[in-house]
Design a protein around this nucleic acid. Structure first.
Lengths: 249, 249
DNA sequence: TGACGTCGGCTACCATACAAGTACGTCAGA
DNA sequence: TCTGACGTACTTGTATGGTAGCCGACGTCA
């Protein structure tokens, strides 16, 4: 009910039901609140969110396009398991785009951009002191987006975001590791420092090192949580998970 | 009726109505059969294609996500005009991804990849001799996709394709220029030659030159067909075009 | 005991009905 | 002639009904 009224309120304020449901489900999936393999029923979601099946269905179609859910007609919709290829592809796309944008950042960045980036770094350090990975996650996203904007390519961020969703799902589990946040902030700082020095090669090296660090974290998570990943290449049968039937009998 | 029964037949063979409508509309938009600014009525399309509003609507949502149509609630859906920013963003994304993939191609490409690429070049030359820009367009797409696959990044092609749609809409008008096809083929050949020589810098330069040539063509089209482009940044009112009312009265 | 056929319940897909809102033609009035 | 209000016809957004198909459990038969 809380979700329902909350959505209703948001709907009165802002956008349409589809966008809200889409953002909500996306956040739940990327935040692993809806883990890979979880079944998503149009009916259940519609009932839970207090809307009809239509906006839910349209949201699921968009999520399917992003690769975050798999739709099996007449069978069900499931949060997609993390696939080796998706991860590799996402990493490639992200590195290519952010690196290319950074090249332009080194030339174009002005004082104002640097101030904003520094402010984000300070906020990240604050989140690290408070041991607040959720806030850090948000600030991390904002940092990378801001960096691309500084290079004059704010629109391209949506492509990175698209790819990043797959990485983030896995990465989120590795973030709480206490040493991680400080390390990532250090790497962020290195990038900004190099940009400020107008050191293109240094900035590129720092960024790629950072992104590959993230990539490595994913591999760590993989060994710790193999159930989130797809074992084989193409599991034709999603092996419908146990529906809600809590050992009743 | 032809469209309707054709879709019905395809539907019996293959995918669902949504995918078919999506692909059809996308092809019409990128091929300028549906020019920028054209109104798209869910009802009209549904009637024409012999399906209900639902799959049409879902297709339009996907096209809106790609930036190919603009949806104004309670007002109408229109083929998006070509925007300066979309073009620039698309060019940036494409260049970054294809260039990064090419870097890997130079290291990974084997004899088989080269043979396929050479075969595509030959087919392109054939299309040029027959003055068949449509076929060339398809082969061009296949060439670039194959090039990325040779670098080990076939999945990333979908990102390029996403961005490319905006460029293609404008570019299509420039292709029939008689000298163009030969020039593009020459540039393609230069890229493959450099890859075969394992000349990373040369390949990168050739590819970027090629992609920027394409970008320049867009500017040429812009001066010749300004009506396809969005004059201002954000036209809040789409100025609904005259509905079908052929001077009747 | 094990294999096979049937049936119930679930799914997504599609079609249709209703609601909310905008643009534009028409018409009354100054 | 010009201006402004109103009604109609259109739009997308949302809700709901109906259909085909798949899964899994149950009952039947060998």
């Amino acid at each position: 009910m809380a979700s329902s009224s909350g959505l209703h309120a948001a709907r009165a304020r802002g956008g349409n039901a589809r966008q809200l449901v889409h953002e909500l489900l996306r956040a739940r999936i990327v935040g692993l609140e809806l883990p890979p393999g979880a079944p998503l029923s149009e009916n259940e979601l519609a009932a839970e969110l207090g809307v009809s099946r239509t906006p839910v269905r349209e949201s699921l179609i968009l999520l399917a396009e992003e690769g975050l859910v798999d739709v099996y007609p007449q069978l069900g919709t499931f949060v997609s398991r993390i696939r080796e290829r998706d991860i590799a592809s996402a990493q490639f796309v992200r590195e290519a785009l952010e690196s290319a944008a950074l090249r332009d950042s080194v030339e174009r960045t002005d004082e104002r951009d640097l101030l904003e980036l520094r402010a984000l770094l300070a906020a990240q350090a604050d989140a690290e002191r408070r041991a607040d990975p959720e806030t850090f996650f948000r600030l991390d996203e904002e940092f990378h987006a801001r960096l691309m904007a500084a290079g004059g390519h704010p629109e391209a961020w949506s492509f990175v975001q698209h790819a990043k969703a797959h990485l983030d799902r896995a990465r989120r589990l590795s973030l709480p590791l206490e040493h991680q946040l400080a390390l990532l902030i250090r790497q962020h700082t290195d990038v900004v420092d190099a940009v400020e020095r107008r050191d293109a090669a240094g900035a590129d090296a720092a960024l790629r090192g950072h992104l590959r660090q993230v990539f490595a974290d994913v591999e760590t998570v993989r060994t710790q949580h193999p159930e989130l990943f797809a074992d084989e290449d193409a599991p034709p049968r999603p092996r419908r998970g146990q529906r809600k039937r809590p050992t009743a009998g």
